[in-house]
Design a protein around this nucleic acid. Structure first.
Lengths: 229, 229
DNA sequence: GGATGTGAACGACTTCACAGCG
DNA sequence: CGCTGTGAAGTCGTTCACATCC
């Protein structure tokens, strides 16, 4: 028997993502938000029951996919009828963890941050902006969308006082890693990063990155490919 | 033999994505942009040759993954040595289709659009903003980042004159579908959509969507899960 | 009939393991 | 020896097909 010392994986291998009772795949979770949004729309139209087919049409995925996903939430569907919209919404909210408020801090008060602060979808889903930071002395002290801008040095105190648990990084790439470190040190538990940088974080700080340049390049690639034939 | 009339798939099933010579997976393409960015960084540091291990460490993926991906570009690697950075960069650019300019239009000149217009990563990768649109009469005629804002009614003429091939949708969700339709009708070949809506498009218009609320909800879910145990 | 829930088949992506070459 | 290139194995995600139940 050779020494089965597994080759050290860099970083942490994707944690298994055990969602309590049922195993939920990352892919399903990525769709939960979309189900939720569409169910809310259906709800506003007065629809009380939706079928996997309707949801699938809305998201442009198959009905089987929808059923597999929703099965993770328990047996909410009624055969021959469909799923009760209100119950589904509640179950999705609970599973996603947005059946509560998420106090959120934003670092880097540029146009992107302003766009996010003004976006009405966030408060609707429980996200509350509670603290803003910018390293530009000219911005510190100003109010943006009703919130004062603080200096990065005040992060520990302001974060603690505001109770922020999530952080949004909207600073230039050069400053992204140090911002992430500062937020992590201040006790933030999850980061949404918009800087085009691969951040290194302690394993207990969660990370979601959105790289806008990558998205646009994906698009260019698709068009390039389609145009090529 | 039952009538093998396949159940009508809604929308188009994911086209096979035949990248010319070698089959490239969507997942690989999604990483190409990242390889490119890191190679450019290595290049600026004066590094001329990189190994799959180095790139893997930078992106936090395995070296085998890197080699598999790069194999799609042809045999650029040199055994025992690594990959020549400059050649790789060129090959990636060509494969992604960003070895050229992409004239791009932006609709909805709010904070998000301003953030994008100002982002220096785009021009660096060949994206050129050539036309802006907003339905707000107060904005029409203004200049933003040096470009005049046009009325949506002028789309066909302005798009044609500017030669825009890509479009960025940064309008509120209510207006997203009609904006997409207008851009498609004006001859745009690819759309980057920021509205939290599932757009319907002709199959010959490519689409990439970025839903910021979904991303933040993903993050909340991860933290929720991590905190839950 | 109409819709869910689910094993089984399928396909896509990732990792392993190692041959091959500089 | 180091590092690439690649079949084979493994894992994950999607689709099919159908039993099941209202």
């Amino acid at each position: 028997m050779a020494t089965r010392e597994r080759k050290r994986r860099r970083g942490s291998r994707q944690a298994p993502l055990t969602g309590g009772d049922t195993r939920l795949s990352r892919a399903s979770v990525a769709r939960f938000s979309l189900y939720l949004r569409h169910l809310e729309m259906f709800g506003r139209e007065g629809i009380e029951t939706v079928s996997s087919g309707q949801l699938g049409d809305a998201l442009r995925i198959t009905d089987a996919q929808v059923r597999k996903d929703l099965a993770c939430l328990g047996s909410l569907g009624q055969r021959g009828i469909g799923y009760p919209a209100a119950e589904l919404i509640g179950a999705l909210r609970r599973k996603l963890g947005i059946d509560r408020h998420w106090p959120t801090a934003v670092v880097g008060i540029g146009n992107l941050a302003r766009a996010l602060l003004r976006y009405r979808g966030f408060p609707q889903h429980g996200f509350r902006f509670v603290a803003l930071f910018d390293s530009d002395a000219a911005k510190v002290g100003q109010r943006v969308e009703g919130l004062p801008v603080h200096a990065p040095a005040d992060m520990p105190a302001v974060i603690a006082a505001s109770g922020a648990e999530l952080g949004i990084i909207a600073v230039p790439s050069e400053a992204a890693q140090e911002t992430a470190d500062a937020l992590a040190a201040a006790g933030i538990r999850g980061l949404l990063n918009f800087a085009p940088v691969v951040l290194r974080l302690r394993r207990d700080v969660n990370l979601v990155s959105v790289d806008l340049a990558v998205q646009l390049e994906q698009l260019a690639f698709l068009v390039h490919l389609a145009g090529g034939e």
